[in-house]
Amino acid sequence: MTARISNVTFHAADPGALARFWSGAMGYPERVGWPAEEVAELKEAGLSDDDIAARAEAWDGDPTHQRFYFTRYDHQRRQRNRMHIDITPFDDRRATREELEVERDRLVALGASVEKTLTGSWGPYEEFAIMMRDPEGNEFCLQ
């Protein structure tokens, strides 16, 4: 048996809004909430509408695609993220700078912000990435 990533989890002030951003970023269907039968089970177990709204997901239901999970966190962040995710517009090839700039603009229109552009080299390989933040300030890189 080997481990696999089941979720990438974010603490969020507004889980639903952050789920909508990441659904748009990843090309997943727009989040419309939890299935009615699941909401009924949660309410029967004693959860309130606010309890249910404290969690959200961005996922297209495909088990080969990454699921993003959001849970309400009301405390102030004490330090910068110690890890972040890297995303790319293609799964079959490396994006050009021009393609990354187009994707950057699409993500900004969804609510992301640009932190800085990273350029350099690693040995003979050119490195180019755009460090960004989602609407709640979580770092990610577009590369």
Results as ranks from 00 to 15, higher is better:
Thr2Lys: 08
Ala3Thr: 10
Ile5Gln: 03
Ile5Pro: 02
Ser6Phe: 14
Val8Lys: 04
Thr9Lys: 10
Thr9Glu: 07
Ala12Tyr: 02
Asp14Val: 14
Asp14Leu: 13
Leu18Thr: 04
Ala19Tyr: 02
Arg20Lys: 10
Trp22Gly: 00
Trp22Glu: 03
Met26Asp: 03
Met26Cys: 10
Gly27Ala: 09
Gly27Trp: 14
Glu30Arg: 10
Val39Gln: 04
Leu42His: 03
Lys43Trp: 08
Lys43Leu: 13
Glu44Trp: 11
Ala56Phe: 02
Ala56Glu: 01
Ala58Cys: 08
Gln66Arg: 12
Arg67Gln: 12
Arg67Met: 14
Phe70Tyr: 14
Phe70Asp: 02
Arg72Phe: 11
Gln76Pro: 06
Arg77Gln: 13
Arg80Trp: 11
Arg80Asp: 13
Arg80Ser: 15
Asn81Ala: 15
Asn81Gln: 13
Asn81Arg: 08
His84Tyr: 10
Asp86Thr: 09
Thr88Asn: 05
Asp91Ala: 15
Asp92Tyr: 09
Asp92Glu: 11
Arg93Ala: 14
Arg97Gln: 14
Glu98Ser: 12
Glu99Ser: 11
Glu101Arg: 04
Leu107Arg: 00
Val108Met: 03
Gly111Trp: 02
Gly111Leu: 05
Ser113Val: 15
Ser113Cys: 08
Val114Tyr: 00
Glu115Thr: 07
Lys116Ile: 09
Ser121Asp: 07
Pro124Trp: 10
Met131Phe: 09
Met132Gln: 00
Arg133Cys: 07
Pro135Lys: 08
Glu136Met: 07
Glu136Trp: 12
Glu136Phe: 13
Asn138Cys: 14
Cys141Asn: 05
